[in-house]
Every structure is written in C-alpha cells, then in structure tokens.
C-alpha cells in the first residue's frame, strides 16, 4: 500500500526520528501532560498538527517558535501517547532544524546561549566545568545579575571547582566537533 503524500517537513521528521506524524489523531494527551505547556506558544499537540500540515507557513511558525526550545525533554508525552508516537523526538528534530536554519527566536536566546556555552566549554576542555560555563553563558546571554548570590555559597560547599578538569586527548575532541559541524553551526 502506498502512503499518502506527506509534507516535506513530515518526511524530514520521519527520516530523523522514525515518527510518522500522520498517525497522530490529535487527542491532546501530550499537551495535557506537558509540564512546560503553559510557557509554550505552540503546544505539543499543535506542533504535531503543524508538522502534519508542513507547508511553508506551518514550518515557519514551528521553527521560529519558542515552544520547541521550552520543551524540557521530560518524555511525559512520549510515555503516554496512545498512538505510541514520540512527540519528544519530533520536537528534538525541529530544534536541530531551527538551529541549523538560524530561526531560533529572540525570546529563547538565553536557552540557546546556555547550550552553546556548554558545548563551547566541552569543545575546548572535553568536560563541563561550572565556572567557565557560567562565565561564558553570562557573557553571551547578557544575563549578568541572576544567581550572583549563589556563587559564594557554592564555593563554600566545594561545588565550584576552581581548577577545571580537562580531557588529555584534545585532538580527538577537536576532530569530533569538526566532523559534527554543519556549516558554521554545530
């Protein structure tokens, strides 16, 4: 049996995740259980619907939505989907696409700045350390004032190591990051 023509976006999602969004019957259980739904401009069930539609307008709305960056990846939607679909994986795929195409909305620059700072630190050192991560994040996100009172308390508790641990074989790390880079983006 031949399947009905899926949208280009739906086809991309299917290849990236194995999820055929045509199977979604819009019950809304993903939205119902989503802990982040109240902060989303497009709720999970609408994300699935827009991928089904998949035209330029739908794709533009999805890839520049805050929602895909607000998703915490908690998998509650996937756990309870009565159609055994994986909305969390669909959102993952959209996020990567949004980043690749430079469509991340301004409202999510903090989230993006954090992820980028995190990967930068890992690329340079092979491991994440709190001080370089926080410093880089604060510089790139402009979020300078938050949590300043926490740092001394973390320091006291040994939770801010002053000497970061690093990977010895940094060439290998460099090679991995270079191979995964698409254009100028990771």
């Amino acid at each position: 049996m031949s399947k009905s023509a899926a949208s280009k976006l739906a086809e991309h999602v299917r290849r990236a995740t194995g999820v055929d969004v045509a199977e979604c019957y819009q019950c809304g259980k993903c939205t119902a259980g989503c802990p982040m739904a109240r902060w989303m401009d497009v709720v999970p069930s609408q994300i699935m619907r827009l991928v089904q539609i998949g035209d330029d307008e739908a794709a533009a709305r999805l890839l520049s939505s805050a929602a895909i960056w607000v998703c915490a990846g908690c998998l509650t939607c996937t756990q309870r989907c009565p159609k055994k679909l994986d909305p969390a994986a669909v959102i993952d795929a959209l996020r990567e696409l949004s980043y690749q195409q430079g469509k991340v909305p301004a409202s999510q620059r903090k989230v993006l700045a954090f992820h980028k700072a995190f990967l930068k630190v890992v690329e340079k050192a092979g491991r994440m350390s709190e001080i370089p991560l926080t410093a880089l994040y604060k510089m790139t996100s402009g979020d300078l004032v938050s949590d300043v009172t926490l740092a001394p308390r973390m320091l006291v508790r040994g939770k801010l190591p002053l000497v970061p641990k690093v990977v010895r074989n940094r060439r290998q790390m460099k090679r991995i990051f270079a191979a995964c880079r698409k254009g100028d983006r990771l």
Partner: peptide, 12 residues
Amino acid sequence: VRGADTLAGRAV
C-alpha cells in the same frame, strides 16, 4: 485532573 483543551491550544 490534567487535561488538554486542544481547541484553545492549552493544558487544563
């Protein structure tokens, strides 16, 4: 009860 209102596009 945590449900959804898919017509309004929100969790309820």
